[in-house]
Design a protein around this nucleic acid. Structure first.
Lengths: 213, 213
DNA sequence: GTACTAATCACTCTTAAGAGTGATTTCTCT
DNA sequence: AGAGAAATCACTCTTAAGAGTGATTAGTAC
């Protein structure tokens, strides 16, 4: 059995060291490279073709979420595990939507890391326990459909539907007799609540969730 | 029975005169105002609240299609008849999508105008004969769903689906290994074929026509 | 009565979208 | 051989979108 090829991406040198120390204990893994930001992550992935990318989120130049998206777009077979110190659920949430398959907390025992990554590499993909139940809370019925953290207000739903009909912010403002600023404000809140990025994704969401007619 | 209040909007003075001459023959109609561009059309509609707006398409400042859209947005009960010299089907097509209820060719007999407008005002909405059959050709089974003039190519369908998934042009270009220019080019052709304006409307179209999954 | 939320509006800044034009290449149809 | 469509890429220009920040008002909940 060949060792799994790992790429570590984190802007903090000491964080990379910590991970390296853990993984070097085990012969199942070999660290093929290290990057310090999202852009490097993409370049190194193309050059090294690792089995797994361990990806930090908050990084300069390009963050880990964007890098995850790009890598999954170009190299769908490369697996990505997002690593983070916080156990903030929204990070995980967004990472999974970008295509990450896994999520690991940096402050776990090395045995946990080993067990997790090994199972992960073998496609058994368990989640670290602390967050597994939170995932289930967010993705209730094995659906990949986004569920709002907070329900949309009536006004927000109204704006959402007009957006999904293809109206511009200006058109919506005219329709609802409010300023374009207000429309933008509502839209910003809607996108934030639904963890979406733009009006196209929102439109897609609206149709897939039966919010239109 | 009160006469129907008509607003004429056309940038050519002689065109407005021609229409005025025709309508003044009949007591069913009263011309409440005249405008020379789309912006005036909106302002005059708000001020005069006509029953019917006769709207030219090609005009300076703001064209008739945009004005039609705005007016229908703010004053849905105001009826709009697009008037044109050409019998170009694409004009009609786009006008109907903006919310116009009717379409009249300027070079028709005054009796035809009278018959048409009277029926139109009474909600009997017949179309001028020359173009009625073309309408049926474009809207086959009483559906308001856009049907492409020209079928989309396989590549275009591919781009369409990626757009509707919420990807940016850049993401799509990376996905398909082509330049962003090419993606824009495809998208431009797609929007043109489907008579749509932007990627949100395209997304809506994709879902409503079962093009996703 | 105060904390919370919804709804409203404002200003800046950066980037993405989309219109307009034009050009090349390859393939198919006839 | 020549027409036509499909796919590709390029450059300019204008406007819309979206992120970031912040503020006010009115109503509701406890």
């Amino acid at each position: 059995m060949q060792p799994f090829r790992i790429l570590i991406v984190d802007d903090h040198a000491h964080a990379r060291e910590g991970i390296r120390d853990i993984l070097e204990e085990y012969e199942d893994f070999i660290i093929v490279g290290e990057g310090t930001n999202g852009l490097e992550a993409i370049e190194l992935t193309e050059k090294l073709m690792p089995d797994i990318v361990l990806m930090d989120i908050g990084m300069p130049v390009m963050d880990g979420l964007e890098a995850t998206k790009q890598i999954k777009l170009q190299f769908p077979y490369v697996k990505i595990v997002v690593i983070t110190v916080s156990d903030d659920i929204t990070d995980l949430f967004d990472a999974l939507k970008k295509g990450a398959q896994g999520y690991l907390l940096k402050n776990l025992q090395s045995e946990v890391w080993y067990d997790y990554l090994r199972a992960f590499a073998l496609d058994e993909v368990p989640m670290s326990k602390e967050i597994a139940f939170q995932i289930l809370k967010e993705f209730p019925q094995e659906t990949s459909i986004t569920k709002p953290d907070t329900p949309l207000s009536a006004r927000e739903l109204e704006v959402l539907q007009l957006v999904a009909k293809g109206l511009s912010n200006r058109d919506i403002s005219a329709q609802l007799f409010i300023s374009e600023h207000t429309v933008k404000s509502h839209l910003k809140n809607i996108l934030s609540k639904l963890h979406l990025e733009n009006r196209v994704q929102l439109t897609s969401y609206a149709f897939q969730n039966g919010l239109m007619n």
